[in-house]
Design a protein around this nucleic acid. Structure first.
Lengths: 145, 145
DNA sequence: TAAAGTACGCACCTTTTGGTACCTGTGGAG
DNA sequence: CTCCACAGGTACCAAAAGGTGCGTACTTTA
C-alpha cells in the first residue's frame, strides 16, 4: 500500500510553514521550480523556444513562422523569456530599428527538451485522434436513454 | 539572408486556404499537432503525467501529491488526458467508490519527455534567479530620471 | 447518531488572459 | 508625397480560466 505513494521526488514534508524546499520539487507549490514550470507551461513558450534553436531571429521572422500568434503575445512572451534568462535581446541600435532574439546557453538547454514535446505532438496525431474517437464512442454507449 | 528562415520543420506553404498540413507541423495553426501541443502546454498536465509514471494512482493520492491543485482542475485535467488517450480511468465499481488512473502506452511515451521539463525546472533554479536579478538591475539602470 | 472519506458534478463569481485597434518615429520604395 | 515596414507600447473589452461552496450516494469509524 505504501507503494502507492512512491513518487518521482520526495514531497516537501514541510515541518515549518514556509516550505522553501531545500530539495527542489515541482510538486511543492512554494518551490521556485514550480514558478519556472509555469513559465514553460505556455503555448507560445513551447513554440518560441524551439523556433530560436537554429539561430537568432527578428520579431517579424517569428510572427511569420509561428501561425496564430499576435504581436502582443509574441512581445509579452519574449519579455518573460528574456527576464528569466532564456532569451537574449540584441538591439542593434539602428534606424529603422533592428532587434534580434537568440537563445542563451541556459535557454538552449531547455529548448532541446521542449522541441521533443513538439515532435511528439507532430508524430502522434493519429494515435490521439483514434483515442478521441474511441472516447466519444464509449461516452455515447454509456448514455442512459 | 535566407539563412534566417531556416527552421526546424518546413512551414505550411498553404497553397489552398485550408492548410490541413500533410507534413505535421506545430507552427501551422491549423495542424492537428497544434491542438495536441496546447493540451500539453498546461501547468497541471505537466505535473499529472509524470506523477503517474510510477504506476496507477487514485484521485486522493494525486490531490495530496500535487500541491495547489483544486479538485475541479484535477478532475478536469484527468478527463482531458483520458479523452486524448494519455490516461486510462479504472473504475473498480466498488462501494465506497475506488477509481484509479494510470498512463496508457501512449501517455507513457509523453510522460517521460515531460518529466525532463520538470527536472530541468528543478535543476536550474539558481541560474534563473540570477538571470532575473540581472534583468531587474538592467531595467533600473536604463531608467531615465 | 453523527461525522468523515470516496469521487465527483454543478453553479456562481472573480481573476486572468488575450484579441483588436490605435499610437510612436524613422527610412526607403513607388 | 504617400505608403509601408520596422519594433514595439497602450488601452479597452470580451472570453476563458479557475477557485469556492454545495449536493450526491454510500460505508466505515467514533
Amino acid at each position: 500500500m505504501a507503494d502507492k505513494f512512491v513518487i518521482d521526488r520526495i514531497p516537501p514534508k514541510s515541518g515549518n510553514g514556509k516550505a522553501q524546499c531545500l530539495e527542489p520539487n515541482v510538486y511543492a507549490e512554494a518551490c521556485p521550480s514550480r514558478a519556472i514550470l509555469e513559465l514553460i507551461a505556455d503555448k507560445w513558450t513551447l513554440l518560441i523556444l524551439p523556433a530560436l534553436r537554429r539561430g537568432p531571429k527578428r520579431n517579424g521572422d517569428l510572427m511569420r513562422q509561428i501561425g496564430g500568434v499576435s504581436q502582443k503575445m509574441l512581445t509579452q512572451t519574449l519579455r518573460e523569456l528574456e527576464r528569466n534568462g532564456l532569451v537574449a535581446r540584441l538591439d542593434h541600435q539602428e534606424i529603422p530599428p533592428r532587434v534580434e532574439y537568440e537563445l542563451t546557453v541556459l535557454g538552449r538547454s531547455l529548448a532541446d527538451a521542449v522541441r521533443k514535446l513538439d515532435t511528439w505532438a507532430e508524430n502522434h496525431i493519429p494515435q490521439v485522434q483514434t483515442a478521441r474517437a474511441a472516447f466519444e464512442k464509449r461516452k455515447r454507449g454509456s448514455r442512459v436513454r
